[in-house]
Design a protein around this nucleic acid. Structure first.
Lengths: 142, 142
DNA sequence: ATGGGTGCAAATGCTTTGCAAGTAC
DNA sequence: GTACTTGCAAAGCATTTGCACCCAT
């Protein structure tokens, strides 16, 4: 938790930006509870905790968190973007349940190996990848 | 080409819907030129060919094409959705160049095998998957 | 003090929808 | 004839932006 704050502060200041209370509050809320989250959820939680920041500032701050590598965008095919922690989490992929929206994470080093193979073959320099399987979870198959 | 039209017509009629000229025109344009495309592009091409259909109808028709399995949505992380042919194309994945936006397709059966493994392990019934690698293509690395 | 930051409300941009008129079956 | 369709313009929604005031450094 504190390490995250440190890392963000460093990033912020290295860019000549400012470590404002709003940014700290958003950072803390992001890393308090959530694995995945969407902006609307985050806003809701902050309201619940009587912390008032504007949606605009949340969007602006999340963009910074993504840039500094603490968060990652994940797109599940819905209209709104989801985010997930990068810090302290092994890179992983997602099973997305079409029935109930549940997200199951999994990870496997075969994917990284596979990615490297493909990239060499295509002379492509990979930065990130995204692998999701859409289908039905155990409960929804019934 | 004609097979596609046949397949669409069949789908349409099986649902008690109507095979209108607009739907045929859009279908033909979709399968005339494009590998991947976005709605705006399609509309532009149709205008060029002096075919006038409303954007609303294009959206509505594409939704049908996706439902009947002739098209597939692909999301590259931009704001607008891309579509690609399913009919007559082996299932494939994408390398997305962050530099120039180029899309390179690749396919490998290892992915299907891998998907099955993961799904068994998690008791998940897969419908589709999406695998993309974001990075820099040969030209953009320079 | 000052350049970046904030909240608000308005703007964007893609996509969807309500409605009146048209048409495939 | 009667659903289903179309085009248009308006509505939706997530996200971004312009601006006047504010504050971390």
């Amino acid at each position: 938790m504190n390490e995250v704050e440190e890392k963000f502060k460093e990033f912020i200041q290295s860019k000549g930006l400012k470590f404002t209370p709003e940014r700290r509050l958003i950072l803390n809320q992001v890393f308090e509870n959530h694995g995945h989250f969407e902006v609307e959820e985050l806003l809701f939680e902050m309201r619940k905790n009587k912390i008032r920041v504007s949606k605009a500032t949340i969007y602006r701050t999340i963009a910074l968190l993504v840039k500094c590598g603490l968060l990652r965008e994940v797109i599940f095919g819905e209209k709104h973007t989801h985010y997930e922690h990068v810090y302290g989490h092994e890179h992983h992929e997602h099973l997305v349940c079409i029935g109930c929206g549940k997200i199951i994470e999994f990870s496997d080093h075969k994917i990284e190996k596979f990615q490297d193979e493909v990239c060499v073959k295509n002379k492509f320099k990979p930065e990130t990848h995204r692998f999701q399987i859409m289908g039905y979870c155990e409960d929804c198959v019934k």
